[in-house]
């Protein structure tokens, strides 16, 4: 096992913990928190993939994922509060 395998397996364990909270979360707010954190973890996964492959494609994927996760979290928060999307 190389160092990159350890990094990827550790991040995968974190992703599964987040998914556990997203599935078991007693309230919708817990699921929103879990999905928000899942997006940030995926950017970390893209960073590890960049080091593993040496291609900058994965960094572009990480940038796009970060911005989309931010917009999605804001939309989820607004929906959670009971407001509509054009409010």
């Amino acid at each position: 096992m190389t160092a990159l395998d350890v990094l990827m397996l550790g991040l995968a364990l974190g992703v599964f913990l987040c998914l556990y909270r997203a599935l078991r979360g007693p309230t919708p707010a817990d699921r929103a928190v879990s999905v928000d954190i899942l997006g940030v973890l995926m950017v970390g996964f893209c960073a590890v993939m960049t080091v593993a492959t040496g291609k900058d494609l994965y960094m572009i994927v990480g940038l796009a994922w970060a911005s989309l996760a931010f917009v999605g979290s804001l939309a989820l928060a607004k929906f959670l509060e009971g407001r509509s999307f054009d409010d």
Binding site: T27, V33, L63, A66, S67, F70, L80, G82
Partner: peptide, 28 residues
Amino acid sequence: WKALLCLWFIAMTSPTAAHAIARAAHRA
């Protein structure tokens, strides 16, 4: 450079999203 940009973006937006979710959860 892309990693640095991504770092800056994460450091700016992740606390903002957390604040929005906490505020929405409290108000709900």
